[in-house]
Design a protein around this nucleic acid. Structure first.
Length: 251
DNA sequence: CTTTTTCCCTGGACGC
DNA sequence: TGCGTCCAGGGAAAAA
């Protein structure tokens, strides 16, 4: 699913083809996409907007218009933004189509319909995003110190039994910080991971899934130490880890 | 207040 | 072949 590396890949692919383009025609096929706003209204409001920039905040794709408005697109589980020369026929999962002034189109498809499009008026986008998102892990401002401050005072396990932040010493905190940035950069370098639905805007697949060492490998021997990969559920989410290489500090 | 669980939603995998 | 059941999970909302 689209995590930060996937969303950043989408942003990078869309930026050169969207900046300067005008939204000529907008069709929102799934009324849930703009919830709770009226899809017809949002579609009508988008017509005529000219793209000034394509940014990213967390896992939101932020399409900024010259008018000062912004379209906040969240792909959630299975959303994808595709840039096409011609809109293909017949796709039951197509949720929106934006025809651009150069004859190309932006097609949004989303199998599981969790994704959202929010049209923010001038000045609304920043407060909206600030209220929902933490700090950008690839920004300069994201330092080991800042990460420590974020985790301080929190009692929740960082991914349950794998890492208990109460026991993160200076070196472990540094390792976590480096690990976060290294993993995200590796993912971006490979244009994200395609497990099933994720596509880049030109329809291609990411390659990061080939680098996964534990994800989806329950029972298989760790390729580093040979111990079987384990799977647990952390905060409601499936979590795989190597009990040998990713040491557990119980309690 | 913090943390966990439920819910949304669909299609693929699996058992019978 | 055709069901019924389970699972995947981002993030909001509800529950604990």
């Amino acid at each position: 699913m689209p995590e930060l590396p996937e969303v950043e890949t989408v942003r990078r692919r869309l930026e050169p083809v969207l900046v300067g383009r005008r939204f000529e025609r907008v069709e929102i096929l799934d009324p849930r996409l703009t919830r709770p706003e009226d899809p017809l209204e949002v579609a009508a409001e988008l017509v005529g907007e000219r793209v000034e920039a394509v940014a990213r905040r967390g896992k939101y794709v932020v399409i900024r218009f010259e008018s000062g408005r912004a379209l906040l697109v969240h792909l959630r589980m299975t959303g994808s933004l595709l840039h096409v020369d011609d809109v293909p026929e017949e796709d039951p999962h197509r949720r929106a189509v934006v025809e651009l002034d150069d004859g190309t189109a932006l097609v949004y498809r989303d199998v599981r319909r969790f994704g959202t499009w929010l049209l923010a008026e001038p000045g609304e986008a920043e407060p909206y995003l600030d209220a929902r998102l933490g700090r950008e892990p690839l920004a300069q401002a994201f330092t080991t110190k800042r990460l420590g401050e974020t985790l301080a005072g929190r009692r929740a396990p960082v991914k349950a039994a794998i890492l208990d932040q109460r026991r993160l010493d200076e070196d472990e905190l540094r390792a976590l910080h480096r690990g976060i940035r290294a993993a995200l950069n590796a993912g971006i370098a490979r244009q994200g991971a395609t497990l099933r639905d994720y596509r880049t805007p030109d329809g291609g697949s990411g390659r990061m899934q080939h680098e996964f060492k534990v994800y989806g490998r329950e029972g298989e021997p760790c390729e580093r130490c040979g111990r079987p990969i384990e799977k647990i559920r952390a905060a409601g989410r499936g979590t795989w880890f190597c009990p040998g290489c990713q040491h557990i500090t119980n309690n």
